[in-house]
Amino acid sequence: GVRASLQVSQMRFWFGKEDFIFQQDLAPAHAAKSTKDWFTKKQLEVLAWPANSPDLNVIENLWAIVKRKICDRKPTTLDQLKQNIATAWEAVSAETCDKLVKSMPRRLQAVIQAKGAATKY
């Protein structure tokens, strides 16, 4: 959908022609046949992702950042919302994404220490 298209556009901007693997959780919308078909059509590789692993998914933090930016603008129409989503997503810096990716070792260690239970992430 719109969210995946924005993410792919931003990833293409950051990585150019370099290969990348798209990560998403197993939310019902992400597991839908139409979603899987969309990724196949776009020839995008999707990371195999285990169920019940939100502690390891940095995209949730990224979406929280985007949501805060959208809420700050208080859109009142669907068109404003769509524009605010695009603007907020484009405003996310490569440094922010890099910081989230570099947090993965800490996230993994926290999950190991919690023996798979929830963590602060």
Score class of each variant (00 low, 15 high):
Gln10His: 09
Ala48Pro: 09
Ala29Pro: 07
Gln7Phe: 08
Leu56Arg: 00
Leu78Tyr: 11
Lys33His: 07
Pro105Asp: 06
Lys69Ser: 08
Ala32Phe: 04
Cys97His: 06
Ala32Tyr: 01
Leu6Trp: 13
Ala94Phe: 11
Ala117His: 14
Glu95His: 11
Phe13Met: 10
Leu44Lys: 02
Leu108Glu: 13
Thr40Leu: 15
Asp79Ala: 11
Ser93Arg: 03
Lys120Asn: 15
Gln83Gly: 10
Arg68Tyr: 13
Thr35Tyr: 08
Asp79Gly: 12
Ile59His: 05
Trp38Asp: 10
Val8Glu: 15
Met11Val: 12
Arg107Thr: 00
Arg3Pro: 06
Thr119Val: 04
Gln23Glu: 04
Phe15Val: 03
Met11Leu: 14
Met104Tyr: 03
Val46Gln: 01
Lys99Asn: 12
Lys67Pro: 04
Gln24Gly: 04
Gln109Lys: 14
Asp25Gln: 08
Ala4Gly: 14
Asn52Val: 10
Trp14Gly: 03
Met11Lys: 11
Asp19Gln: 09
Met104Phe: 05
Ser103Ala: 14
Gly1Ala: 07
Ile70Asn: 03
Gln113Leu: 10
Leu47Asp: 07
Val66Asn: 04
Gln23Asp: 06
Lys42Ile: 05
Pro75Lys: 08
Trp38Thr: 07
Trp38Cys: 13
Gly1Thr: 15
Ala117Ser: 15
Trp89Met: 10
Pro75Ser: 11
Gly16His: 01
Phe15Asp: 08
Leu81Tyr: 09
Cys97Gly: 11
Ile70Asp: 13
Cys71Ser: 15
Val66Gly: 02
Lys41Gln: 10
Asp37Asn: 15
Phe39Val: 08
Ala114Val: 02
Lys33Gln: 07
Asp25Trp: 13
Pro28Met: 11
Ala31Tyr: 04
Trp49Val: 00
Ala51Leu: 05
Gln24Cys: 08
Arg68Gln: 10
His30Asp: 03
Lys33Glu: 05
Pro75Gly: 04
Gly16Met: 03
Pro28Lys: 10
Pro54Gln: 02
Pro50Trp: 01
Cys97Asp: 08
Asp19Met: 03
Leu81Glu: 04
Lys82Val: 06
Asp98Ala: 09
Gln83Tyr: 07
Trp49Lys: 00
Leu78Pro: 05
Arg12Glu: 09
Ala31Leu: 13
Pro28Arg: 08
Lys36Trp: 04
Tyr121Leu: 01
Glu60Asp: 05
Asp19Leu: 06
Val92Pro: 01
Gln43Tyr: 13
Leu62Arg: 02
Ala118Trp: 07
Ala110Leu: 01
Gln109Met: 12
Phe39Ile: 08
Gln83Trp: 07
Trp89Phe: 10
Cys71Thr: 09
Asn84Tyr: 12
Val8Gly: 05
Asn52Glu: 08
Leu47Cys: 15
Ala91Glu: 03
Lys17Val: 01
Ala31Asn: 14
Arg73Gln: 09
Gln113Val: 14
Glu90His: 09
Val92Met: 04
Val58Arg: 01
Lys82Met: 14
Thr35Leu: 09
Lys69Trp: 05
Ser5Val: 12
Ile59Val: 09
Ala88Ile: 03
Lys17Pro: 02
Arg73Cys: 15
Asn57Asp: 09
Trp89Ala: 05
Asp55Glu: 04
Trp14Asp: 01
Thr77Ser: 15
Ser93Gln: 07
Ser103Arg: 03
Leu6Gln: 05
Val111Lys: 00
Thr87Gln: 07
Ala91Cys: 08
Ala27Leu: 13
Glu90Leu: 03
Ala117Ile: 03
Arg107Val: 00
Asp98Ile: 06
Gln113Met: 08
